[in-house]
């Protein structure tokens, strides 16, 4: 066993850092959802109606949206997902929550990280006051770039200590969850007609999906032809692409082992055991089997397992105290 670190990490601080990272990743992914859907709608054949309901569905928050009583128009959905202060998973709420968490651990993270989160906050609050963005893709790009910048700053200004690994853990788990939901969008989205399956129009949608996770180019290099099962394999099981579920879980697992100091292949707590199991499952999974059992069903169970891992992390590391600022979930 390692000697106690000179500067032990407060449970509350670990919790806040972990959630700060999750919220930033969540904000980035919601911006990606909106961007890809907007892009898709532009490619719809003339005469077919816009579909904005599917991206509400993939967040898992359809009920909350419906309570608000609006139709699933572009305006309503973008307002809800991007700017609604009352909806805890909107980009706005995520960035506010990330900032609240960052504020409570300002002495742990670097000043540069804090300033970057703060400028994201100023960006999103200014846009919220102004109303819907005139050029939606530009707004989504700004959010994406701001999140990239945050991670770059974190990488280079914060010591890669225990708190940093909690940041990585939160970020990777959130990303694995969101990529799995992105992949699920094809389950919810309706093609203009059943006969469109496998047509060029179908290909347009799959391409847009890859682009939404910045995976189009990397996919092309690896598999060339656009094919649904290869895309599922790429986004779920790839061991090199940074937004793939398996890759994200591998990094999450590494972060967790760095936190506990347990050797790889062993586990010292529930979270390590669960995450290790899920990781191995993906390490040895075959896409044919997944598709055979139903992709949507697989993704659903994947998300359930990741939620359970999150619960275990809370139990193992944060549970000794009341929860910090948390917008939702």
């Amino acid at each position: 066993m390692n000697a106690a670190p000179k500067r032990p990490l407060l449970s509350r601080v670990a919790d806040a850092v972990y959630w700060m990272a999750r919220y930033i990743e969540r904000a980035e992914n919601v911006a990606r959802f909106i961007d890809v859907n907007h892009n898709l709608m532009l490619d719809l054949p003339r005469g077919s109606s816009d579909q904005w309901q599917p991206i509400v569905d993939i967040t898992g928050d359809r009920a909350i949206f419906q309570e608000r009583g609006g139709a699933a128009t572009q305006e309503n959905v973008v307002r809800f997902l991007a700017f609604e202060p009352e909806y805890p998973n909107s980009i706005y709420s995520c960035i506010v929550a990330a900032r609240e968490n960052a504020r409570s651990v300002r002495e742990t993270i670097s000043s540069e990280m804090w300033e970057q989160i703060n400028s994201m906050y100023l960006l999103v609050t200014a846009q919220t006051r102004k109303g819907l963005p005139e050029v939606l893709p530009e707004f989504c790009r700004q959010i994406r770039m701001a999140c990239h910048l945050f991670h770059g700053i974190a990488q280079d200004t914060m010591s890669h200590n225990e708190a940093w690994y909690f940041l990585q853990l939160g970020r990777r788990l959130e990303r694995a969850d969101k990529t799995s939901r992105m992949l699920d969008v094809k389950y919810f989205i309706l093609l203009p007609s059943v006969t469109d399956v496998g047509t060029p129009y179908d290909e347009v949608q799959w391409t847009a999906l890859l682009k939404s996770v910045t995976g189009f180019e990397m996919y092309r290099k690896k598999f060339g032809r656009i094919s649904p099962d290869k895309i599922a394999e790429f986004l779920l099981l790839d061991g090199e692409f940074p937004r793939a579920v398996r890759y994200s879980l591998v990094l999450a697992d590494e972060a967790l082992h760095a936190i506990t100091g347990t050797s790889r292949g062993y586990f010292s707590c529930q979270s390590e055991q669960r995450l290790g199991l899920l990781r191995s499952e993906l390490d040895y999974a075959q896409v044919e089997a997944i598709l055979g059992g139903g992709l949507h069903e697989f993704l659903d169970s994947l998300q359930t397992k990741m939620n359970a891992i999150d619960e275990c992390i809370r139990e193992d590391f944060f549970a000794q105290h009341a929860a910090p600022a948390r917008a939702g979930a």
């Binding site: 106690a4 032990p8 407060l10 449970s11 000794q320």
Partner: peptide, 9 residues
Amino acid sequence: FMRTTKGLE
């Protein structure tokens, strides 16, 4: 003591 991820310090 303070509560840390590794116990009380």
